[in-house]
Design a protein around this nucleic acid. Structure first.
Length: 334
DNA sequence: TAATTATGACGAC
DNA sequence: TCGTCCTAATTAC
């Protein structure tokens, strides 16, 4: 379920814990045995996020391409070096049940012990012995008894250093590529504001959108037009722009298209820093805390069908667009 | 225990 | 436009 922000966060964790290390690579599930054997024993040289995809570079011109799709996830375990943004975003914690699966991190009664045996202490500099699931957001689980831990469920790939283990489950794509193949995939993707922050990206996005007869609600989800936007950010960006999702791209005023791009860059940056898809701005500190605490209060329109618009009171509607659920306010986005 | 759901993307018609 | 693939948590029965 991750959109672009989560992939950038996951990539940061790989930069911090894997780049520069020789890794053991395996496929406990058995569905990536060949690829794992090819990568096993090589040094990780690079970790890059492009839109919703992550590319992990290995010595010998090998790249691992991973796309998490709707329900893929990375589980980190061991003595994990926390990226500063990830450590600070995870003051609230979940715990694992007896089967070792992750419970809801938003359960206020959940308590987890870190390596020092203290409750909910996040240390940034030192590695923390813990278990961390990264998909759409992050959930911290109970510390495993052993290292490396027994694989839980369907683990497509396990990457292992001396101290850290990363398990990939449920990806929609997981393959080994050569540099030319990586280049071909990246070239086809639209710009990612974090990867290409320059004005050229805004130009490219704007000119493509302004040429197309396709509804803007579909263009925003098209990874070849702009990389990293998913169903949540689509709905929220359109509302924030007060834009009707059915408007053909070429009929959206140029300045509005440019604003869309800049707003996406802004929301992505917030998502990467906080780990949450917070799409409501200008909240006072109290309202902001409440919004971050409750998934129900974080968005203008997403998953709010039948509820009154936060701005005009009109009921938010739900319709299918691009085989996905689109939420919007028919009055504000007339 | 089964059905449902999910913040993707692809290929066949 | 539809079916298909990937998996786990939650909800319904």
């Amino acid at each position: 379920m991750p959109e672009g922000h989560s992939v950038h966060r996951i990539t940061r964790q790989f930069e911090r814990n894997f780049v520069g290390h020789v890794v053991r690579v395996s496929s406990p599930q058995g569905r990536f045995v060949q690829g794992a054997a090819d990568l096993d024993g090589r040094r990780v040289t690079d970790a890059r996020a492009v839109g919703k995809q992550m590319f992990l570079g290995f010595e010998g011109d090998r790249w691992l391409r991973v796309h998490l799709g709707m329900y893929g996830a990375w589980d980190f375990a061991g003595d994990i070096l926390m990226d500063a943004t990830i450590a600070s975003a995870n003051g609230r914690m979940g715990q694992t049940n007896q089967r070792g699966t992750f419970l809801d991190a938003e359960n206020p009664d959940a308590v987890v012990l870190d390596s020092a045996g203290e409750n909910s202490i996040t240390s940034i500099g030192a590695p923390r012995r813990t278990r961390l699931r990264m998909s759409e957001s992050e959930k911290e689980g109970a510390r495993p008894e052993t290292f490396p831990p027994e694989p839980i469920g369907q683990v497509r790939v396990r990457l292992l250093t001396e101290t850290v283990c990363a398990d990939l489950r449920g990806p929609t794509a997981c393959e080994v590529l050569d540099p030319a193949q990586v280049e071909a995939i990246v070239a086809k993707l639209g710009p990612d504001p974090l990867l290409d922050p320059g004005p050229a990206s805004e130009e490219r996005f704007t000119s493509v959108v302004r040429r197309k007869p396709t509804p803007i609600g579909l263009l925003l989800m098209d990874q070849n037009v702009v990389a990293g936007i998913g169903n949540v950010y689509r709905a929220e960006l359109l509302f924030r722009a007060r834009l009707n999702p059915h408007t053909p791209g070429r009929l959206v005023p140029e300045e509005v298209v440019r604003d869309l791009w800049r707003d996406w860059a802004k929301l992505l940056a917030i998502g990467v820093e906080t780990g949450q898809m917070m799409t409501m701005d200008d909240l006072d500190p109290e309202a902001y805390r409440a919004a971050m605490a409750s998934r129900d209060d974080r968005h203008w329109v997403y998953k709010r069908e039948g509820q009154p618009c936060r701005v005009c009171g009109t009921n938010i509607v739900l319709e299918e667009m691009g085989a996905r659920k689109l939420y919007w306010c028919p009055r504000c986005q007339a």
